[in-house]
């Protein structure tokens, strides 16, 4: 599903050159739920940005769903992002002026679906996250957990093959966080590949595989299921 080989990302200013990713190698298979952890500044967010084609990279190769994205132009990256990837952000990133219906509608409009199809997808996805009865509400009228559920609905509405979650529970209390994690696991079980960036090791344990990033490189890979079996 996602293969990064020797990916490099360098941020340059006049005085400083920062290697955010150095020879970053990672393979995520279809249907996997992978958690990426690591300390602040380790390169987690840079990895997420590159994986989501929000940023370009300086070297190496990145193949997403069988397509080498290294040399795509801005329009092609936007199209691929819209079709293949669903994003869940730490601060939800809902558009405050739009109600829930219109928020979920945003990526679907860029996809070019007709009104009927969009309406059906929006209703389905809001139903999935249990907010179908709040479609006309504004984000500010919802709790943090509910807002994150809307963000998940927005990510799901396009029926992406790949979900990228950036600290999806970072702004939630533990009960809300667990609820969101359960929703993500349920989505994963329905076949969607998920890569979740988190600094919370306990949350990471709920993914099937943990990647630990340090100094811009993958330093450890744990199969959580095998660890659980071993611990038992």
């Amino acid at each position: 599903m996602l293969t990064m080989t020797n990916v490099k990302k360098v941020f340059r200013t006049d005085l400083v050159e920062t290697h955010a990713l150095r020879d970053f190698n990672l393979q995520v298979n279809e249907g996997e739920f992978v958690a990426v952890t690591g300390p602040s500044g380790s390169g987690k967010t840079t990895f997420l940005n590159i994986a989501g084609m929000l940023e370009t990279f300086n070297g190496g190769s990145y193949v997403l769903d069988g397509q080498d994205v290294s040399h795509l132009n801005d329009n092609q990256r936007s199209k691929l992002r819209n079709e293949k990837i669903g994003f869940i952000f730490q601060s939800y990133n809902l558009i405050p002026d739009l109600n829930l219906f219109d928020n979920v509608d945003v990526p679907l409009r860029y996809r070019g679906f007709d009104a009927k199809e969009r309406k059906q997808r929006i209703e389905e996805s809001l139903e999935t996250v249990g907010l179908a009865n709040r479609m006309k509400h504004l984000p500010s009228q919802l709790s943090g957990g509910q807002q994150q559920r809307v963000a998940i609905a927005r990510a799901l509405a396009g029926k992406p093959r790949f979900l990228l979650a950036d600290e999806p529970t970072g702004n939630l209390d533990s009960a809300m966080a667990q609820s969101v994690m359960e929703l993500l696991q349920s989505i994963n079980q329905s076949g969607t590949t998920i890569v979740m960036v988190t600094h919370d090791p306990q949350l990471a344990q709920q993914a099937a595989r943990n990647i630990y990033v340090k100094d811009g490189q993958v330093s450890e890979v744990h199969d959580v299921l095998k660890m659980h079996v071993a611990n038992a």
Partner: peptide, 14 residues
């Protein structure tokens, strides 16, 4: 931020 979000969700520059 909203423009960035729209771009992340698939909006092209046009």
């Amino acid at each position: 931020k909203q423009i960035g979000i729209r771009r992340a969700l698939g909006a092209r520059k046009i």
